[in-house]
């Protein structure tokens, strides 16, 4: 455990450092590694009955958010909503969850629009006649027999 505490502390400072110098992709990778360790620490502390496991669980969520892993951040925060915590911590969880949801919305919107025929941005096998939700790609328009075979 001592080594986990030390390592994640160093990683968080390193990630903050990379973010400060503008290395966004490097920072995201290091935040993600720190988030993984924080999650492990939180699990171990919770198993031991340490009431302060939430500090590491929230830190994991904060790191996932910095790493732009919004689903993982939301999962970590939602898990904390089921735990009895100080009122001020609850408020911060809700506030951060709202932030995560706002970040998730554009991704959800892209997924929704992509699922609709008229907005589909990529193609996969289909008849290519525009009559099926799958038939949007020019590659398949000239090969209806191949598209039909693959669709079947």
């Amino acid at each position: 455990m001592k080594e986990l505490f030390r390592r994640k502390s160093l990683l968080i400072v390193e990630a903050d450092r990379l973010k400060a110098i503008g290395s966004q992709s490097g920072a995201r990778a290091v935040y993600a590694e720190a988030a993984g360790i924080e999650t492990r620490i939180a699990q171990k502390l919770r198993e031991r009955g340490d009431r302060e496991f939430y500090i590491n669980a929230f830190s994991a969520a904060s790191c996932w958010l910095e790493a732009r892993r919004y689903d993982a951040a939301a999962a970590a925060l939602n898990e904390l909503r089921n735990v009895e915590l100080p009122e001020a911590v609850d408020a911060e969880i809700e506030q951060t969850l709202g932030k995560v949801r706002r970040q998730q919305q554009p991704i959800s919107a892209i997924r929704l629009l992509s699922s609709r025929r008229e907005f589909a941005a990529c193609s996969y096998p289909g008849p290519g006649d525009g009559q099926d939700a799958s038939g949007t790609g020019p590659r398949w328009r000239g090969r209806p027999e191949l598209a039909a075979a693959l669709a079947a």
Partner: peptide, 17 residues
């Protein structure tokens, strides 16, 4: 050192953990 929102929180004690 733990991440709390956008800031880093520093914890102090007599031994690690």
């Amino acid at each position: 050192v733990a991440k709390w929102g956008e800031r880093a929180d520093y914890y102090v004690g007599r031994s690690e953990g």
